[in-house]
Amino acid sequence: MLRIHFTDVDLARTRLASAPDPLFDIAASLHRFQTRRGRWAFAGWYRTTRQQLREKGLERALRSVLLPLYPRAAYYPDFLTPVGAVDGLDMGLESILATPPQRVMAEIAILDRIVGAPAWAGQLAGLEARKEFVRVLRAYYEVVVAPHEEQVRARIEAERAARCRGLLDGGVEGMLAGLGPMLRWRPPVLEVAYPRQADDRDLHLNGRGLTLVPSYFNWREPVAFADPGLPPVVWYSLLHEPEVRSVTGSAPEQPLTNVLGRARAVALRAASAGATTGEIARAAGVSASAASRHATALRDAGLISTVRNGPTVLHTLTPTGASLLRAALRKAEADLTGTVV
């Protein structure tokens, strides 16, 4: 377990990242290939991704280059997920190239000591080897992560909306209290459930604050830098719902789709975590004007409520909408298992 110790200054300087971290998404997606835990949550992604990796000729690079450097274990090198990556893939890859050779060597040595490093890993201290490695990372990202960017961004924005409600209700402490189940706020300490093989440790923020980065591809394994001297960051998992399908092949939204239509069913699902009109548009694959019309129809039916903040509106479920959504999900899972609702 990691115990992060806050002061009042740290609470004031804690923030939630505004976008996905592409380099951490690479790391977390590589971990999905190394375990069956949570496979149900990524079943569709897993099937299509393995096929795409074969078609693009990246399977060898996956096995011999990437998986050995990103073990799903107590440690992988910090320089592979630089803080600058929250500003985009290009910034993150530039940060990897700019890593001092001494730091690369030191972190590869830690990897070797803890889980074993590939024999060639020390070459990454050289700039040319790192340039080639960055090319592999970019190719992998384009095949594995980029095709899902819209879905990932929509989920991140929904998570931000949910955390903002906690912030409004209870300040930063209210936001931290809603991060579970793998992160537990026990004032003034945030307890982070680490993989079993990791040792317990304490991290004192000492006025630096904390950056929280939700990750679509992470599965119940929050991650922080091993080096306490680096800027404090915690990447944590979104709460996934199963990609269940009934025995007839229908999706979880099918009962809703039969009544509301596909776009409005997706809009209702999006509103369950709080969503702007733009987020609904991206989730449903429709224009902003069409999303606005669907939101209006759902609001007129008493299924969602809308709050305006300047040019932006936030749509959330009413109790009726929440009951309808829960009933539809129960029906879908009952179809899958053959039980009676």
Rank of each mutant, 00 (worst) to 15 (best):
R3I: 04
H5Y: 14
L11I: 10
R13A: 14
P22K: 04
F24T: 04
D25W: 02
I26G: 02
R36L: 08
R37A: 14
F42P: 00
Q52C: 04
E55Q: 15
K56N: 08
G57R: 06
L58P: 03
E59S: 15
V65N: 02
L66C: 08
P68C: 00
P68V: 00
P68D: 00
Y70K: 00
Y70A: 00
P77E: 01
P82K: 04
D87Y: 09
D87F: 10
G88W: 01
L93R: 10
E94A: 15
P101Y: 06
Q102P: 02
M105G: 13
E107I: 01
P118R: 07
A125H: 00
A125D: 01
E132V: 10
V134P: 13
R138M: 10
V144W: 03
H148G: 04
E150C: 04
A161L: 12
A161G: 06
A161I: 09
R165L: 13
R165I: 04
G166D: 03
L167P: 03
P195K: 06
D200L: 06
L205T: 01
G207F: 03
R208C: 12
R220W: 11
E221W: 05
E221F: 03
P222Y: 10
F225I: 01
P232S: 09
E243A: 12
V244S: 04
R245S: 01
A251F: 12
L260F: 12
R262Q: 10
R262I: 05
A263E: 15
A270T: 02
A271L: 06
A273K: 13
A273R: 15
E279G: 15
A284D: 10
A284L: 08
A284W: 09
G285H: 13
R293Y: 06
A297S: 15
R299P: 02
A301N: 13
N309T: 11
T312Y: 08
H315I: 11
T316Y: 03
L317K: 01
T318D: 10
T318Q: 08
A322D: 11
A322P: 02
S323G: 09
S323V: 03
S323L: 11
L324I: 04
L329P: 00
K331R: 14
A332V: 12
A332G: 10
